[in-house]
């Protein structure tokens, strides 16, 4: 690192300032997940449309069947990843204080992980119990 010529001061580097060499990665992930979510959202709507009026047993049978369960797993995992990336941009746009911003970004990541784990656990439990 010491040999590498850079205009960035060491102080700026440890503060995560300057180029992260990944400028387009976030935008690419947003586009990739949004394309994947188009068919997955249609599948999700069809699954939800067949829910009203079902009792506990028949709702379990629907949600735990292989095809709806796999589509639900994909919808919640890709969807929650997409929304976590999206909320990251909203936080970066509107929260400017360094501490508040980093706390909000961490809370956003944790929210996505907890929601993702809970949803995946629920669908797997519907499928295997």
């Amino acid at each position: 690192m010491a040999q590498k010529s850079t205009l960035l001061t060491p102080r700026a580097r440890v503060s995560f300032l300057g180029s992260a060499k990944s400028g387009t990665h976030h935008a690419w992930l947003m586009r990739l997940t949004s394309f994947a979510l188009l068919p997955l959202t249609i599948a999700f709507i069809l699954i939800v449309l067949s829910l009203p009026g079902r009792d506990f047993q028949s709702a379990r049978i629907l949600l735990g069947s292989p095809c709806p369960a796999i589509l639900l797993l994909l919808f919640v995992s890709v969807g929650i990843y997409h929304m976590t990336l999206g909320m990251q941009v909203i936080i970066e746009d509107y929260i400017h204080g360094a501490h508040a911003k980093h706390l909000a970004l961490m809370a956003n990541t944790c929210f996505g992980l907890v929601l993702g784990a809970a949803s995946v656990y629920a669908v797997l439990r519907l499928s295997f119990t």
Binding site: F56, V76, M83, G86, M87, L115, A118
Partner: peptide
């Protein structure tokens, strides 16, 4: 997008409720 962020909480709650008991 922000509204759906909150709405996904409802989806997770529904799935957990369905994965529970009657």
């Amino acid at each position: 997008g922000a509204a759906l962020y909150a709405g996904t909480l409802l989806l997770a709650a529904y799935l957990l409720a369905a994965a529970g008991d009657a």
